[in-house]
Computed example of a mutant assay.
Amino acid sequence: MFHTFADVKTAEDLKLPVPTLAARDGDGLRQPNMLAVEPSPELRHYIQDIGDRVDAIQQRLVPSEEDNMLKVSSDGRKAASDRRLVDPALFQHGPTKIGATADLLASVYEEHKDRIYTDPSTGEPEPARGALQLVFCDFGTPSEKWNVYGELKDQLRRRGVPEHMVRFIHEAKKDNEKGRLFAAARSGRIAVLVGSTSKMGVGTNFQKRAVRLVDMDAPWRPADLEQRHGRILRQGNQNPEVRISQVVTKESFDSFMWQGLERKSRFINQIMRGRLDVREIEDIGDNTLNFAQAKAITSGNPLVLEKAVADQELARLSRLDRAYNRNLVAVNHTKRGEQASADAAAQDLPLIHAAVARTVDTTADALPSHYRRPNLR
């Protein structure tokens, strides 16, 4: 019904002159690279604590104002980035997502710091050299306390990236400030620009030198992810080939988030393309997780999460089967009632025909004389 009045054109249909996504390491597919980070012992312990919280919530041992599944989901997502987002007093041992991102950004900076870009209007080489990298992070935005943005900037400085060339989208409070920030990004005065989806995902124009985009976390909606990647896969980018990296902490809530995005985007693409191979699409607007998914995540076994999803699908299909059988019984009952009515009508039909044969036309002069009232005049 939607496609009877909607004219949907996807990026594949438009074929705009945008950069090509570089082939992924390993399988050669032109898709984002997944940069996996091993979980620290502290994170594993914290995830197990989340499992205990889920048990307490499921058994209603804690009031919903104190703890609930939405808080569990939020804390799990924060811990997957850095446990200090949950509690700034916690110290993070071992490899971290921030450290892995800093290593990647620093290596790309060294690789492209002498790259030459041209002025679009004149075609002349611009004096400033170097490419631009974009980092999206929705947790740990700049504030007075410890935050991911500040830690990332500090680690980049220690790896040789000039501190003044690492900027945050949050520095620009007004439209004119954003304009100057974007101009600096296009002119090569910024090497790394960090921002959140809400502030840097829509209405931005700094793709000219963008060579690498990093997703440090996963948003809830596929549209948000599409807006992120649209900042680099965009007309006006002078890099013929770009890369997108997604930093993921193993055995954490990252698996739930990225699997959820993949599932949601698959359904949405079916609708937008108008080539549905199913009659129903499940509701994808829920921004939290259920008990089975939470327990699967805290188990540390990705197969358990797949089983939880399969169990959900089995429960859904079982409900449909029961509803179908109940509907079938109701239809059969209605059928028997209608058949009985038809049989009774068939028995009455000869009597009705006989009654029709005995009827007398009483209209105007057709009425027999012995039925007429005598003329009293």
Rank of each mutant, 00 (worst) to 15 (best):
G99W: 08
A184M: 12
A185C: 12
S73Q: 11
R212D: 10
Y324H: 10
D286W: 02
A296L: 05
K174A: 11
F2W: 08
L35V: 15
K264Y: 08
Q347H: 12
T141E: 12
L14E: 01
I116G: 01
Q207P: 04
R372M: 04
Q58I: 04
E12I: 11
T101C: 15
T359A: 00
R157M: 13
P142S: 12
V54P: 02
H170M: 00
Q312R: 01
L261D: 01
I244Y: 01
F168W: 10
A185T: 03
M272P: 02
A106Y: 07
E124K: 14
R44W: 01
H45S: 14
S196A: 10
G76Q: 05
L43V: 09
G150N: 15
A128G: 04
G123T: 01
A296I: 02
I281C: 03
L328V: 11
T122H: 05
H333V: 11
E66R: 00
T101I: 06
G337R: 12
L104Q: 02
L314K: 10
R279K: 15
A355Y: 10
F5Q: 11
D286Y: 12
A79M: 05
D277V: 07
R30P: 04
W258M: 05
T20D: 08
R44V: 11
A184F: 01
A345C: 02
V278W: 03
R129A: 05
T4N: 14
D13L: 09
G51I: 06
V247F: 09
R186W: 00
V86S: 12
G150R: 15
I47E: 07
A100H: 12
L29H: 12
V148S: 03
A346W: 07
